[in-house]
Amino acid sequence: MITVGILALQGAVREHAKSIEASGANVIIVKRTEDLQEIDGLVMPGGESTTMRRLIDKYEMFGPLQEFAQSGKPVFGTCAGMILMAKEIIGQEHGHLEVMDMKVQRNGFGRQRESFEVGLSVKGLEGEDYIGVFIRAPYIESIGEGVEAIATFQDKIVAARQGRFLACAFHPELTDDHRMHAYFVKMIEELKQSVA
């Protein structure tokens, strides 16, 4: 059985866990670097990216998270998690983990009061539109070679995939639709099968 870790520094950790379990995988709440040894893939939840980076540094997780991302295991970043994964962040000199070849705009759709929900067509998800919950959401300004935009809203990229990396600007854990998490679990399963 697949085991997915959820980085538990900030964000809706329990809700992500519920969606991952509904997608047929085990969950480990990642609070220490040792927890990374136990998992097949990692979810980096939303929250506030600057605060999350401070906590990552405080708990000395930056190096281990980078190593995990470079180890060949899948990573799924949602909202602030997406910002942490980006190579470039508009208005900042450096990215954070810099594992995905994309440039992101923080608070791309405005502040908290401009939060909204919208139906999205997400490549790779069957069935009706996926309801994206956007809260102080970023968007992807541009992507590099090898990165595929899998969902857009108002001509802005709001979800992308680069090999084993998946990122979205919205909060898939805040709906009862588990398809985004199931997509990530399937990514892990396919990768495990390909190296088996």
Rank of each mutant, 00 (worst) to 15 (best):
S115M: 15
S19R: 14
F116H: 07
E93Y: 07
V4M: 06
K87I: 03
R164I: 06
I150P: 02
M85H: 06
T3V: 06
K18T: 11
Y183W: 12
L36S: 11
A169V: 02
C168D: 05
K156V: 06
P64C: 00
T3Q: 08
I20K: 06
S19C: 13
I143V: 03
T78G: 10
I90S: 14
D40Y: 00
Q162E: 12
V30E: 08
Q37W: 01
E67P: 00
V4E: 05
Q105I: 10
D40N: 09
H16V: 01
G127I: 11
I2L: 06
Q92C: 13
G108L: 07
V30F: 04
V4F: 03
I2G: 01
E114D: 15
E148A: 12
I140G: 01
I6W: 03
H94P: 00
F116C: 08
K31A: 04
V185S: 01
M1H: 10
I140N: 04
G163H: 08
S142A: 11
V30T: 04
M85I: 02
F68M: 05
I135E: 09
K31T: 07
Q105M: 14
F165T: 06
R161G: 08
G95S: 03
G119W: 03
V13I: 11
G11M: 00
L55W: 09
I143C: 00
F68H: 03
A80K: 01
V122R: 08
E38Y: 12
L65I: 04
G77P: 04
N26T: 04
L174N: 00
M44D: 00
M52W: 06
F153E: 13
N26E: 14
G127W: 13
D101L: 12
M82W: 06
K156R: 15
G127L: 12
G163V: 07
E114M: 14
N107W: 01
M52D: 10
E48D: 03
A151S: 13
T175M: 01
E34G: 08
A12K: 08
V43N: 08
I83K: 10
D101R: 14
L97R: 02
S23M: 02
H16D: 01
F184R: 02
Q112Y: 11
A69P: 03
E34Y: 03
R54T: 08
I83W: 09
Q193Y: 11
E60M: 11
S71Y: 02
L84K: 03
A159R: 14
